[in-house]
Amino acid sequence: MLSVRRGCRSIRTDTRFQVFGPEPEPGPEPEQSTRSFSSTLSSVLWKANDILLLVAEDFYQSQRCPPSRFLLVPDTLDQWAESTQLRLLGYQEQARLFLSQSREELVRQLSVLEELLHVFPAVLISNHERWQGVELREELGGVRRKLEETLSASEKEKCVNVCQLRVSLREDERLTLNSREELRQQQLHNAICCTHLELQECLRVKGEEFVTSLACLTENLLSQLDNMLTPEETEAALSHRPFKDSTVSMESGAETGQTPCPVSSVRTWSGIPYLSPSTDLPSSVTMAITASITTTRCTMGHLAVIEQRDAAVKRFEQLFRSEWSHSDDDKQRRLRELQSWNTHWRQQIHTLTHTL
């Protein structure tokens, strides 16, 4: 016979053909975002197997056409079911191979990403530091250019006053000229002192802005690292096995100056002290500091971010103190020059007065 009648018993209930497990229990369909690839594949294959068995059973039991007309159709229902399920199992194996390769590729890509993350904080923090330094120099340069303009105008006025100083001046003319020159000197003195204060204020504001923005950038980077799985964790999650304890090695910890810590451990990172122009502060003086940052993890990426942050602070602090020192030195130099000229002018006036 080319077909087999099974009476009331369906081939779909035969355990031999339930190669994808028993019928799933009825219930609400899970959301698409919560279904894994494996569970979705198993559901599709089970439904396909069940439908094909139902169609085959109906075909072989209907006898609507002589079986001899279907030369490529197996002689019996059992043979047809076995042949069809072999194909379905082949699809299942292909899907498993695809899933395995996808997992390996994902782990590889995460490893590459982890390597890039060791470079990314350095680049991002370095760029941030560089632009902050550029802005600081531009603002300081603007203040100094205004002083140079004032100095240039004052120097021209000085030359005029010097040219007018001569023996033939009447007493009232001499007194007027001396008053004008003393006023010029006082205005120049005020301009030098005000510029110095403006430079210090600019340094203070930009230094505070740098520390605050760097602290914010650091917190964002650490937060991103908190939410990122390591390759070990990803591989363990994909293979449904506990991942090996991934810790920062003693050697790596020594390189970064940080205490090695497990990946899963909570860690609190200290804040950044605000910049001070002097390193000789009394121990009783407490410097302001940004808020500390607490992370849920401690990885090599976290350590790299903190290392780059602290290095950037040291470099910017050197620039900050250098500019502060330059501002002090420049003020003292200009005031000495002004005082020297003031003494010389008074001597000239005194000599001219007693000569007359």
Rank of each mutant, 00 (worst) to 15 (best):
S270C: 13
V266L: 03
L319G: 00
Q200G: 09
R333C: 13
P231K: 03
A215K: 06
L140W: 08
E149V: 08
S43G: 03
K156C: 11
E235M: 06
R166I: 04
T234S: 10
R174N: 05
P282T: 09
L225T: 08
R108W: 11
V44W: 02
V248R: 11
G301C: 13
I293K: 05
E155Y: 06
K156V: 12
R336A: 03
P277E: 12
Q85Y: 01
I289S: 14
I306F: 10
E135K: 15
A311S: 14
T34A: 02
T256V: 01
A311D: 08
S168K: 13
E93V: 09
E25H: 05
S168D: 13
S33P: 04
P28S: 01
E198W: 01
S327K: 10
R35G: 01
E182Q: 07
Y60Q: 01
A48S: 05
E155P: 01
A215R: 12
L77V: 07
Q63G: 15
R333M: 02
E114I: 09
P24T: 02
R334D: 03
S126Y: 07
Q186E: 13
L110P: 02
W80C: 11
K146M: 04
L71W: 14
R64N: 06
L117H: 08
S179L: 01
L41Q: 03
L52R: 15
R108I: 00
F37H: 10
G141V: 09
E139L: 07
R96Y: 09
M300T: 04
S111E: 03
D328Q: 09
R204P: 05
I51K: 15
L99G: 00
S111T: 11
Q101G: 05
Q332F: 07
S83P: 12
L77R: 06
W80K: 14
K156I: 11
L110D: 10
W324H: 07
G253W: 07
E233H: 01
N49P: 02
T279H: 13
D226N: 11
S38Q: 15
R297K: 13
T230E: 08
S292V: 10
P121F: 00
F59K: 15
N161H: 06
G90E: 09
P22K: 09
E201H: 14
C261F: 07
A191I: 04
H240V: 03
